[in-house]
């Protein structure tokens, strides 16, 4: 009897300890853990009961229209402002954003450098306040400038640089101390396509080395291409959360991507037919639509062919992130954006 109960107990013990280990693993896998966080600014709630987990090694997208509370969330993660309610945990509770600043690279929404300072001196300073020694910071600064094609500008004053170049310098400042986590607020806004590609390469390379990236954006194509996890916020609340692949799967293969080659106008009545489509994003030369329940691709294809519409593409797809975003955030986005232009 005794031996029996012992074995049951030890069995329980093993189970519970496995559970504990599993839980601990789970916690340590989250680099950023935001737990039911709320932040109010004079009379309006910028972030409402927000929870999110950024897994170790992920590229995490924080999406939402202007004024959704993205920047406020990021500021709370960085301990620049304190939440009114809830808790932010970084690296499993090792300290606040500022205390861990040597492990975190941060590119704030408000971009700024000292205009009168030399580029390299500026980088040395930014490196030093992230815990690098001055000589190390100077060496790394020089390497990064070379890598991003700004080598010749090292001795120039910041104010002599173009806006795109300044943003590159800021990028370097955020990542030069080789942090484990990069938090980038709208990293690609205001960049031309060439610079966007250059910065994207830097971020992708950073993530490839097993580091974690969290970035906010309202440009869905970017998030779609780069992120493996996303959270969509609207009016301070989370509306979508999860792995990008899971989210898309959840929306199912009920979407049609169309590209027209001729007789475009003949397609209009079919696209507007609510018995076939729940909603359609019409781009003129192409369209993306969500099919109504019970409707399959064949039915739509038959209707289009019968109407004499020429097609260069007909594909049943997962919805684009843009489509999910619009479906979830809807028309409210525009209202919120108008009320809070500063993206608080």
């Amino acid at each position: 009897m005794r031996r029996g109960s012992d074995s049951v107990d030890s069995g329980r013990w093993i189970l519970s300890s496995v559970k504990t280990v599993f839980l601990e693993l789970n916690v340590s896998q989250s680099v950023i853990s935001v737990d039911r966080v709320t932040k109010r600014f004079s009379g309006h709630t910028a972030v409402k009961q927000l929870s999110l987990e950024v897994p170790q090694g992920s590229v995490f997208g924080l999406l939402g229209p202007n004024g959704a509370g993205k920047t406020t969330t990021i500021r709370m993660i960085m301990d620049i402002i304190r939440p009114d309610e809830g808790r932010v945990t970084l690296f499993g509770g090792a300290g606040t954003g500022r205390e861990l600043s040597t492990r975190i690279g941060f590119l704030p929404e408000e971009r700024g450098l000292y205009p009168k300072m030399q580029v390299l001196g500026q980088l040395a300073f930014l490196g030093e306040i992230k815990g690098l020694t001055r000589s190390d910071a100077l060496r790394r600064g020089r390497e990064w400038l070379e890598r991003l094609g700004l080598g010749e500008w090292a001795e120039k004053k910041v104010e002599d640089l173009s806006k795109g170049m300044q943003q590159k310098v800021q990028f370097i400042g955020a990542l030069m101390h080789d942090p484990d986590l990069a938090i980038l607020d709208e990293p690609f806004s205001g960049l031309d396509p060439v610079n966007t590609m250059a910065m994207k390469d830097v971020v992708v390379d950073f993530a490839r080395r097993g580091k974690t990236v969290m970035f906010s954006t309202h440009i869905m194509e970017q998030a779609e291409r780069m992120c493996d996890h996303i959270v969509i916020m609207a009016k301070g609340e989370k509306v979508v959360d999860g792995r990008l692949a899971d989210i898309k799967a959840e929306y199912g293969k009920s979407h049609l991507a169309l590209e027209f080659s001729s007789n475009r106008e003949q397609a209009a009545p079919i696209l507007q037919d609510r018995s076939l489509f729940l909603s359609v994003d019409d781009y003129g030369g192409s369209a993306e639509g969500e099919m109504a329940h019970g409707v399959d691709g064949d039915t739509v294809l038959r209707a289009l062919v019968n109407a004499g519409v020429g097609l260069s593409r007909f594909e049943v797809v997962e919805p684009s992130l843009q489509k999910i975003f619009i479906a979830e955030v809807g028309g409210d986005a525009a209202i919120t954006a108008a009320r809070e232009p500063g993206d608080a």
Binding site: R75, M78, D79, I80, G97, R98, S101, T102, I104, F106, P108, E109, E110, R111, G112, L113, Y114, P115, L126, I129, K130, Q170, G173, A174
Partner: peptide, 15 residues
Amino acid sequence: EKTNHINEVLVSSLT
């Protein structure tokens, strides 16, 4: 520093 918007970077690593 306020007009140059540099504070946020500074405050994220300095008290």
